[in-house]
Write a protein that binds this DNA or RNA. Structure first.
Lengths: 193, 193
DNA sequence: CCAGTGATGTCACTTGATGACATCACCGTA
DNA sequence: TACGGTGATGTCATCAAGTGACATCACTGG
């Protein structure tokens, strides 16, 4: 619709406007109470167009996950040749901390939206499980046998979850990478029985 | 509708008929290709009634999870007083194996439906994460401090996932509880770095 | 025999999601 | 300049998930 956008046909890109509008509404009134039509309206677009940019209403909140994924996998590939599985995982977690560790405020806001809605938690979990699978795959490619590769991959994501949760809730001066390292060490102790 | 059920008004219960009909259709033509209306039709009921028994189309496949939950939590409570966190988790996993270890055929069928559909995987994951949280909670009630309780709970579910997967795919003579124990031992080794 | 209760059906509606097709801006090129 | 192609968007139609409101019928206890 040309009439909707008066003169400057190109503000930011459509996906960006949709994402921003969606975040605003999710925070203002909650995820379920927000309609795709409303998001599109606020972005000056149409519901139909929303679905051309996002597979579904939830996906808006998970756009950044590809970057995390890439960083983690790169770290796995570049880890020193002789490293033990959990050493590789530690390197991957460090890379993850680098990606996630910025924007604590945004992370908190986003997480509070997610925590308030089971549907969104489901989506988040599937992303993390994919990450675990990818991690395990990377380890297998490095020659780590099963079930060690799977266990290490899953364990890595466990550490990520626990450390990230602590980082989000704890008063600000904790470094995410530090939290990761501590959780990793702690897991070694606990798992030993 | 009285006319639908000719004479014998009470065959099995409605929930059971709906569940059976849904499973059949999910297997026959896949989850997404199955409509709630079709499920209800096959069960001799209405779509509206389907939603009186199941929160959504997916929930049909996850009805048994409460039993698993209960068994696991009971095992946690009944573990010997001085047991280390992972000893408690081991006991819980043994209880879980007791519940899941029967009906390998049904489990396989159910899992293949789930594996074929991301939506269903999400639902399964959220159940498992709830289990991890409950496990952690049980440990905390036993006096295990954070982050050990969370880590042990999550680690327990990791072991469950890995062992269950192996049990489902491997030729039949492997005991689930055996697979659990092996995965648990292996995790201890891997996590030690 | 009747009132109450619970399970179900019917109807109407909102919302998410998708396919088909039309439209418009923009870009390169004859 | 005029033209044709391409990509992003709008419009329309439609299906399926889910929910609320209300009616109906069987069963049960008094």
């Amino acid at each position: 619709m040309t009439r909707i956008m008066p003169v400057v046909r190109w503000e930011p890109d459509a996906a960006g406007r949709l994402r921003a509008a969606a975040m605003e509404l999710y925070v203002e009134r909650g995820f379920e109470q927000t309609t795709v039509a409303e998001i599109a309206l606020r972005a000056g677009l149409t519901a139909r167009t929303f679905f051309r940019h996002f597979a579904d209403k939830r996906e808006v909140l998970f756009g950044g996950s590809a970057a995390l994924f890439d960083e983690v996998m790169r770290a796995v590939e570049q880890a020193p040749a002789g490293a033990a599985p959990m050493q590789v995982v530690a390197a991957a977690l460090d890379a993850a901390a680098g990606v996630l560790g910025q924007h604590q405020d945004y992370s908190r806001q986003r997480q509070s939206v997610i925590n308030a809605n089971p549907e969104l938690q489901e989506r988040e979990l599937i992303k993390l499980v994919s990450l675990a699978a990818a991690l395990a795959d990377g380890l297998r490619r490095r020659g780590v046998p099963e079930p060690d590769a799977s266990l290490a991959g899953e364990a890595g994501v466990v550490v990520l979850r626990v450390a990230f949760g602590r980082w989000l809730t704890e008063p600000g001066d904790l470094e995410l990478s530090q939290a990761m390292r501590e959780a990793l060490d702690r897991l070694a102790v606990v798992a030993a029985r």
